[in-house]
C-alpha cells in the first residue's frame, strides 16, 4: 500500500528526516507524534507523494514515486484521502461542491455524487450546512468537511495532519470517532498530532500504533502513553 524504505529528506541544506522505514498495513491505525517542526507534515507529504525523498524509496501501491508521472500521482491520490491542518477548500464553492470535488474531478456522475454526498454530510454532521461557503464554517465544521472530502472517494488510506488542531475537546472527540469508524470499515489511518490526550482517548476504542519523530528518526512510542 504505502511503503517507505530507508528514506531521508533534506530541505534547505539540512536533513529533516533520516533512515525512516515504514510499511502501512491495510486496516492499521497509526498516530504520528513529535514536537513542532520535527517533520510530521513532511513525513505525511512523503507518504502521499507530494514530496520525493532525497534518499531511499517510497512506494505507493507498488510504484516508486520517482517513476510516477503527474497522472500516476493523481490516480494515487484518489486512493489516499488527505486532511490538511488548514483544510484547503475552494472558498468560492459551497460546502457540498467542495466535499464532492474528488468525485467531480474523477468524472463520477452527478447521481452517484448526490447519493454519496448526502450520506457523507449527514455522517459528519453537516447535513444542514451543505450550502454554506467555507469561510462561513467554524473550525470544527471545516475539519469535518475536510474529512468528508478526504473519504468521499472511499480511499484505502486516510492521512490526517493535526485534524483536531483548531477545535475544542468535544469536537476533537467527534472527529476521532469518525476516524475510528473509518478504520473499522477497513481504512488505514495515519494521524499526525501532538495531542497526547487524543492518542490516549483513541486507545480506548481501537488498536493503534504510535510513532514518534525524534532527532530526524522515526521511533515506535508507547510506553509513556
Amino acid at each position: 500500500m504505502i511503503e517507505l524504505d530507508n528514506i531521508a529528506y533534506s530541505y534547505g541544506g539540512g536533513e529533516l528526516l533520516s533512515e525512516i522505514s515504514l510499511k502501512l498495513a491495510p486496516g492499521s491505525f497509526h498516530f504520528l507524534t513529535g514536537p513542532s517542526g520535527s517533520g510530521k507534515t513532511t513525513f505525511l507529504k512523503l507518504c502521499y507523494g507530494a514530496l520525493v525523498p532525497t534518499a531511499g524509496t517510497v512506494q505507493l501501491f507498488g510504484k516508486d514515486v520517482r517513476d510516477m508521472d503527474r497522472d500516476d500521482h493523481a490516480m494515487a491520490r484518489r486512493r489516499i484521502g488527505v486532511v490538511h491542518q488548514d483544510c484547503q477548500f475552494l472558498d468560492h464553492l459551497p460546502l457540498r461542491e467542495n466535499v464532492s470535488l474528488p468525485l467531480t474531478v474523477s468524472g463520477r456522475d452527478s447521481l452517484e455524487q448526490n447519493t454519496n454526498l448526502k450520506e457523507l454530510l449527514h455522517w459528519v454532521g453537516l447535513g444542514n450546512r451543505a450550502s454554506a461557503l467555507p469561510p462561513e464554517l467554524s473550525g470544527g465544521e471545516r475539519q469535518r468537511a475536510a474529512l468528508a472530502r478526504a473519504v468521499i472517494m472511499s480511499p484505502e488510506v486516510v492521512l490526517a495532519d493535526e485534524p483536531t488542531g483548531n477545535v475544542d475537546w468535544e469536537m476533537s472527540q467527534r472527529l476521532l470517532q469518525l476516524l475510528v469508524e473509518l478504520n473499522r470499515m477497513g481504512k488505514t489511518i495515519v494521524i499526525a498530532t501532538h495531542d497526547m490526550n487524543l492518542i490516549r482517548s483513541a486507545k480506548n476504542h481501537v488498536q493503534t500504533r504510535v510513532l514518534r519523530i525524534s532527532n530526524r528518526k522515526l521511533q515506535l512510542a508507547g510506553a509513556d502513553l
Binding site: A50, R70, A74, R77, Q88, L90, L101, V105, R149, M153
Partner: peptide, 16 residues
C-alpha cells in the same frame, strides 16, 4: 495557485 494545489491534492489530473 491555491486552487491548483487543492485540485491536485484531491486527485485532479493536470489535463483536467
Amino acid at each position: 495557485a491555491q486552487v491548483i494545489s487543492v485540485l491536485r491534492l484531491i486527485g485532479a489530473q493536470d489535463g483536467y
